[in-house]
Computed example of a mutant assay.
Amino acid sequence: MSARPQVDSVLVIRARDEATKAVTAIGSALEQLIGTQKKVAAGSETAASGMQQILGVLASLDKAYARTTEATDSGAAALERQNRAIAASKAQYASLEQQQRGAARAADQLRVALVEALLTNGNADALRAQIVEVTTEMRRLESESGKLQRSIAQQEVGYTRAASGMAELERTTRLAGSVSTFAATEANDYARSLDNQSAAAQRNAAVLKSIARVTGTDRGAAVDNGA
C-alpha cells in the first residue's frame, strides 16, 4: 500500500483539528467583543480604546475564518486523492483478476493439449514446460491480487476514517462561518455605535461652545483665567 493514502487520511484529521482551533479562536474573539462593550459601557475603557480593540477583533475573525476555509480545502483535496487512489487500486485488482482468468484458461488448454500429445506421441515436454510457466504466473498473479485486496481494505478503512473527519470538518466550518458572521456583524454594529457616540459628543461640545460664545460665559471664563 502506498504511503500517500495514509498521509492524506492524517491530513484530513489534521485539517479538522485546525478548523476546531479556529472556531475556538472565533469564540475568543466574540468574548473579547462582549468584554469590550461592557468595559466601555462601565467607563473603564474609552470609546477610542474600545474602537481599537474592535478593529483587532475584526482582524482576528478574518484570520480565524480564513484558517477554517484553508482547512476545508485541504481536507477535501486529501479526501479526493484517497478516493482516486482506491478507484485506481480497484481497477488494478480487476485487471489482475482478468489476467488470472486468462492464465487459468491457458492452463486448461495446455493440459488438454498435453493429453493429446501423450496419446499421439506429440511434443509433451514443450507442453509441460509451458504448463509450469503458466502455473508459476498464476501463483504470482494470485499473490499480487491477495496483497492488493488487503491494501484496498486498508485504504477503505483510512477513507472511512477520513470521511468521518471531513464531515466533522464541514460541520465545524459551517459553525465557524455562522459564529464569525454573527461576531463580525456585532463588531461592525458596535463600531458604528461608537462612531455615532463620538460624533454626538463632538456635536454637543460644539453646541455648548456656541452657547457659551453667545451668552458671554466663555469671556467670563477667559477673564477668570486672566485674573
Rank of each mutant, 00 (worst) to 15 (best):
N123L: 01
A129C: 03
I13V: 14
L194F: 04
L119D: 12
K63P: 01
G226V: 10
A15S: 15
A71Q: 05
R139C: 03
N123W: 00
S44P: 00
S193Y: 14
D218G: 05
R14W: 05
S164Q: 13
I86M: 02
T173V: 15
Q37H: 05
K39R: 15
A66Q: 14
S28Q: 14
R84H: 13
G43H: 10
A117N: 04
A124R: 04
T172N: 09
T136M: 09
D8E: 11
A191Q: 12
Y65S: 14
Q202G: 04
A85D: 13
A66E: 15
R171L: 09
L175T: 15
S180L: 02
V223L: 09
S143A: 15
E170L: 10
M138Q: 14
A163K: 12
R150I: 02
A15P: 00
A103L: 11
T215E: 04
G146N: 06
S89C: 06
I54N: 01
T215R: 04
S28G: 14
E156R: 03
D17H: 10
S60T: 14
G50S: 06
A163V: 05
T181M: 08
I152M: 04
K90A: 03
R16A: 15
R203Q: 10
G158N: 14
S164A: 15
L141I: 01
L127V: 04
N188V: 15
Q155A: 07
R171M: 12
A176Q: 07
A191L: 08
E144A: 09
K38T: 15
V207M: 04
L30I: 08
Q155I: 00
Y93P: 10
A117Y: 01
S89F: 03
I26K: 02
A88T: 02
Q154P: 00
R171C: 11
E137P: 02
A87N: 03
A103E: 04
Y190P: 06
A103V: 09
Q82E: 13
A15N: 03
S145L: 00
R4D: 09
S210L: 13
S193N: 14
L96R: 09
M138D: 03
Q155Y: 14
G146A: 05
S180I: 03
T46D: 05
A212P: 10
I26Y: 03
K90H: 03
A41M: 09
T136N: 13
